[in-house]
């Protein structure tokens, strides 16, 4: 009774699973980027990991998909969760054993947030980083941060740090709403 012939169900499952890795052309890189674009940042759930600019590269290494991901901050507590969410999305698409690599170089900069990502942040009530990351903006002179609600530039910084390491706390002097500003680094 111990028949080692695979049942038809096993065959179906096996044939369903293997090709995703064995024939990477079944999922083009563009298709994988699309999948990744559906993985949201757990702390700022309106932007995807692609829009945030933290997915740095995709490649097939033999049978394994390699996804290079860079953390926003050295101590970002969402780093492991984001890596797990990405791996999960890849597995759900039939890609077996995706390898998620944490890369530190080059260091993430807010310059990598896409224009769509910036619009979504603003619509969510978070002022996107202003201009380009430079030493001046890190050390320096206060940037003019527009209120994401009423667009007024009449705003003030309440604190260098907001609800997460990547944000600062501001307040609009016109509409009086406090808001988060995605710091420029």
């Amino acid at each position: 009774m111990h028949d080692h012939q695979p049942s038809s169900v096993d065959v179906l499952i096996a044939s369903d699973r293997v090709p995703a890795n064995a024939h990477p052309e079944r999922l083009t890189e563009a298709a994988i980027w699309d999948l990744l674009d559906r993985v949201k940042d757990p702390e700022v759930p309106v932007v995807s990991v692609v829009e945030l600019g933290i997915v740095r590269g995709l490649s097939w290494d033999g049978k394994h998909l390699q996804v290079d991901v860079t953390p926003t901050y050295s101590g970002c507590p969402a780093t492991e969760l984001i890596e797990e969410l990405i791996a999960e999305a890849m597995r759900a698409a039939g890609i077996r054993d995706p390898q998620i690599n944490r890369v530190l170089t080059p260091a993430w900069t807010t310059d990598w947030i896409t224009p769509e990502g910036r619009d979504k942040l603003r619509a969510f009530g978070i002022a996107p980083p202003q201009g380009s990351a430079s030493k001046m903006s890190l050390l320096g002179a206060d940037e003019i941060v527009a209120c994401p609600r009423c667009n007024s530039e009449h705003t003030e910084r309440l604190s260098e740090f907001g609800s997460t390491a990547c944000k600062a706390l501001y307040r609009c002097r016109d509409c009086l709403e406090p808001f988060d500003y995605f710091k420029c680094i």
Binding site: Y73, T105, A107, L139, E160, F161
Partner: peptide, 24 residues
């Protein structure tokens, strides 16, 4: 050492911001 340079490149952005705050 590339590994050290990479960790430092990330950390220096954070440290710069820390210094700005503590100086203030």
């Amino acid at each position: 050492d590339d590994r050290i340079a990479g960790i430092a490149a990330k950390a220096v952005k954070e440290a710069t911001y820390h210094l700005r705050r503590s100086s203030e």
